[in-house]
Every structure is written in C-alpha cells, then in structure tokens.
Design a protein around this nucleic acid. Sequence first.
DNA 1: TGACCACCTATCCAAAAGGCTAGGTAGTTA
DNA 2: TAACTACCTAGCCTTTTGGATAGGTGGTCA
Lengths: 220, 220
Amino acid sequence: MPLGRRSPMAKTRVVVADRNVITRVGIRSILERNSGVAVVAEATSYDAVIDAVDEHGPDVLIIDLDLGDDTTAGLKLCEIITERFPDTKILVLAQTLSEMIVVEALRRGVTGYLCKDDVKADELGKGVRAVQDGDTVLGRGVGSLVARGLGSTRGQTEHLTDRELEVIKAAAKGMSNKQIAHEIFISESTVKFHLQNASKKLNAHRRAEIVHRATAAGLL
Amino acid sequence: MPLGRRSPMAKTRVVVADRNVITRVGIRSILERNSGVAVVAEATSYDAVIDAVDEHGPDVLIIDLDLGDDTTAGLKLCEIITERFPDTKILVLAQTLSEMIVVEALRRGVTGYLCKDDVKADELGKGVRAVQDGDTVLGRGVGSLVARGLGSTRGQTEHLTDRELEVIKAAAKGMSNKQIAHEIFISESTVKFHLQNASKKLNAHRRAEIVHRATAAGLL
DNA sequence: TGACCACCTATCCAAAAGGCTAGGTAGTTA
DNA sequence: TAACTACCTAGCCTTTTGGATAGGTGGTCA
C-alpha cells in the first residue's frame, strides 16, 4: 500500500493508540473530517499496538505512551516499532510533558511529539502529514524541553534502576529509611545508597525533591 | 429513547467544558451518535463556562475541573453553577482521581463524577441521562474514594492555606527549612510550623509524603 | 466583646536524613 | 580476562527533620 512519498490519491493511513475512548473518538473525528487521513485501527494496550501496526502497516502511529501502568513500556514499544516497522512513523500525543520521556522517546525513533492540551484541531492533521513526510514535529514547549534535556544530561538521560524506583516509591509514602529497609529486606545503608544514587540521577538533593521529580517524570 | 420525567421528544442539552480539543470533539461525537443528547456549546475556560451555561441553560454541564492552572478555581465554579443555575446538573469528567477533589466537588453540588480513562463509550451517554434525572453517578473507583475521603476526615476535608502551599512547593524543590525561611522572609520556626500543620491536614508525616500527596491532589 | 482564623515566633530533644569514603557479590559484555 | 552494571553493606559526622509545647499579632464575623 505505501508507495514512495505519497500519491495524491492515497490517504494517510493511521493507527491510533490511547487507552481513552473519548480521545480515540476525538482524534478519529478530527482527522477524518480532514479527508487526507484515514484511521485504520485503534489500540488500547501495548500488545494491541504491535498487532495493529503489524496487520495494517500504517503510515503513522499516533500514540499516548502512557497505555499501562508503566510508561517505560511505552518507550520500549517505540523502540520495537521503529526497528520492526521502519515505514511507520510515530507521533506521540502525550497528556503531560516530561523532559525525560520526551528525550527518551526521540532517542527511540519518535519523530513527532505533541501535547494533547496544547494541540489545536488543525495542527493534528498537519502533524500527521509532516511526520509522514519524515519531518520532526515538536509541539509548543516540547522543543525547548528537548534542548534543556539534551543539554543538562549531555545526551545521556540516566534512568533509575528498579531498586531505586522501589525505594523512591516507599519514600513517597512517607516511610523512613529504616522502614523501607525492613519492607524490602535490605539494610538501612542500602536504602540510603539507592536514594543517593537516585538523587544524583535526578539532580535532586533531598528526598522530597526526589519524589517530586520522579512523580513529575511520570515514573511513579 | 428514555422517557422518565423527560418528554420523549426533547433532547438532553449539554455544554462541554474541557481545555482539550480532542476531548471536546470526542465527547461530542460519542454523545451525538447516541441521539438523545445534543451538545449546544463548548467552553475552554472558567469564565466561558459561566457564559455558556447562562446563555444556553443546558440540562447538563460536562466539565473537566482542570481548565486552568488552578484546580480550586474549578471547584469554585461548581459552587457558582449550582447556586446560580440549579437546573443545570454537573457531571465532572476528570483526567485523574484525587480524593480531595472528588469530595470537594460533591460537596459543591456535583452529581456525577467519572474518570476519562475508565469511562466506556456507552457509559458517557448513560451518565449524562442519569445526572439529568437527578441521580448521582460515580465512576469506577470514585465511589470507594469518596467513602474513604468522607470517612478519614469525618466529613471535613481540610484545605491548605496559601502559606502552607507556598512552603510545600518550596519543599518540593528540595529546599531546606532554612532556605525556605530565607526565600519567603519568615523564620525557620514558621516554616516548620506550616509544614506541621500541612502534614496534619494531609495526614502525612514526612515532607516527602507531604509533597507527594499535594502533588497527587493536584495542589501543586 | 469573644471566638476564630491565618499567620508568625521560640525552644527543646530525639530521630532521621545527607554526604562521604570504602568495601563486597553476581551477572553481562567487550 | 577485564570492565561494567546493578546490587548490597558498613561507619562516621553533620545537618535537617519531626514532634511537642507555648506563646504572639491582626483580621473577620456573630
């Protein structure tokens, strides 16, 4: 189906992935009103996205990375898609902006990143066509975020290990190091160790800031 | 075609308030497909909601309380609507669930509370008709949240004062009490005082938990 | 006027957290 | 094999907290 650039006849074929019905219907309505685009499938889970892309071979995948409990799974998904289906461009349509997520997504081959709350109706169609043409589309505010993100971490956004996340989550619940140590069967020293590593990665210096940043980054 | 106390002819007239185009279009599509409902106006700001309700006198207002930077403004809006336009029922369609917001909304006359991510396409129409009929509609998870909310605070959700919020925000940035004191020109003791009061109100015992709860409640 | 509120301050002490250095294991990869 | 990673532990000392108690002001409202 996909041929060269785009024949003036062929509609842009899109798969929409979002856990939220309202959003899916909204995207479909907006795009189909604008008759250069056809939504060929919808998906609500990470697995369903792969199946849908595999089955329909769309030109563009519009996706909210936050399809499950684990946002990092969304990033992994992007990696899989770009690798296995290089002809399908990815346009992320995020609920919230997080520096870390944006940077990680772009690193995994995502070529468009818009924020739901900022996007205007006509921008959605434009964005789809632009990413289909191989352009990179970054919504309002996303661009500067990327610049900061890449600058501050010198091209290497460090990610938290499982243990670190586990400790941070416990800290967010107000537990002391001693309590956390007890909870997950490690020593208090280790808890402090994980928190210190996490604080370096998140560039935070107090546990309150650690949990705040982790929350803002959508990691909790 | 439902016919309770409503005439079988008359469509339910709805105003949709959400800052997000995609959501507005989605809600409109879903509801109008289901031909008992007509969306008569859309609004994207708190002021516009009042104007729209005043002008169209809808049966139901579907609203995402989070129309601006300040969620509490959304709560104030509910109060105004129920007072000035008692014939317009309010159905909140929230992005995220927060115990405090749900409880406060219900206390201000909201009769429906659904969560965007949980709602199924047919539930939206059902919800609208139910609140129009004067029923209270609480989405999955919302009910239990209310029970906990009302139980834990004995019917009185305490709210944070301006100063308390200010201190919490600073704490979230990783500042120590001393730094915060310096920043807002009060003594370190006062900072501790505010944090202690806040921790009682939020039922948290550590500053990490305070900022986490405040964040989760959409207060930051 | 008294009650109440948001706000401000102080002192005391024990507990917790922060920052450091200096080790260890198991598993993976170049 | 060496290098790297995630993970785990220890001790030391300082700073920051949490929690309690006990005062104060100015404003609002019945």
